[in-house]
Write a protein that binds this DNA or RNA. Structure first.
Lengths: 201, 201
DNA sequence: GTCTATACAACGATAGAC
DNA sequence: GTCTATCGTTGTATAGAC
């Protein structure tokens, strides 16, 4: 992450920093809901929240980060996650992705993933914004390893990860629902690794 | 319901054939909702519908078939599907599963899968019944090939299949959403095949 | 007559009481 | 272990629609 709350009192605009963050999240939900991800602008969200547009980057790292936490309620910050995933050898990429996915969502609690699925399944709006967000994010993740067919590989990885979340957190099939993380990494990482760098046709 | 049947139970054809089917579906939704899949009995459902238990087999092939059409609204009959999947060499099992999954759901239309996901994500009840149904069904599918760790393999297969459906029908990530079936079979079948018969630890 | 939706009986499996 | 009750399922005779 960037800084903690070192700039909170600098010009005394708002005494409590958390209020800015909360206001941004509420404004973001409204604006993203009205305009979609592409249609919503950081400036419009910040204006509605009554704060400066720079606060978006300060609190959420990016427009995507704000979207992730406000609308999708993802339990992580995309930029930070990107750095975590890309740090390591390419042939352990699948392993890192699966382990990180499970660790983060386990930490957040199954109901968070469940809520995400419900909103995506229920509202075409949410599906659309998630789609552009996920594709943009995962393309960055995959882009660095120089494989071809980036879009298809992205879809394939998404299918295995999303399915893993569905089985573990939503449908709660045993033994996957109660399993430790590492056995699942062992079983599933080769799939993701193949989707990333292997032969897919 | 098909009427309170004030007439004494007579053998033979009752006027209004479709009414029995409809009555069974309505009764099944009620009983499955109250008791879950295992707790609900065919006889209880038939009694509530005011017809004989044998009508379940006549109209839906099995208890699972009734559940599939009444609660999950699946576009296929489990027994028929089981026969289709198990007919062929074991080393093409993954291929058949992926192709059949996509063919059936494509035929039904994406909104049907979407509705299934929504009901499973929304109601713990539906998740529970789907869980026992799916495990029972897939255990039969996998049971014939004699692999170990049947439950884990079932979960893994389910994760890839459900994820594929989520990406193609719900989130609609390109290119997976618009792809022809066969390229997806080529890309994903090896994953399912490995989950079924390969090394997973 | 044929066709089929229906009811009833019975089978094998399974779970629990004793 | 034995007995019993109940489960899902199957076979079959029958009644009504055609």
């Amino acid at each position: 992450m960037a800084g903690e709350d070192t700039t909170a009192r600098r010009r005394g605009r708002r005494p409590g920093g958390q209020d800015t963050r909360t206001a941004l999240i509420e404004a973001a939900r409204a604006v993203f809901g009205e305009s979609g991800f592409d249609g919503a602008t950081v400036r419009a969200i910040a204006t509605r929240a009554g704060v400066d547009a720079a606060m978006v980057n300060h609190w959420f790292g990016s427009k995507e980060g704000l979207f992730a936490q406000a609308v999708l309620k993802l339990p992580f910050e995309p930029h930070e996650l990107l750095a975590e995933l890309t740090d390591g050898p390419d042939d352990e990429f699948g392993e890192r992705i699966v382990r990180t996915f499970l660790t983060r969502w386990d930490g957040a609690g199954g109901h968070v993933f469940q809520a995400l699925v419900r909103s995506v399944a229920g509202h075409e709006q949410a599906a659309q914004v998630l789609r552009s967000f996920f594709q943009s994010f995962f393309t960055k993740v995959i882009g660095g390893i120089g494989s071809d067919r980036v879009e298809l590989r992205t879809s394939l990885c998404a299918s295995q990860l999303v399915g893993m979340g569905m089985v573990r957190y939503v449908a709660q099939f045993e033994p996957m629902a109660s399993s430790e993380i590492e056995p699942l990494v062992t079983a599933i990482a080769p799939t993701v690794q193949r989707y990333l760098t292997g032969d897919i046709d």
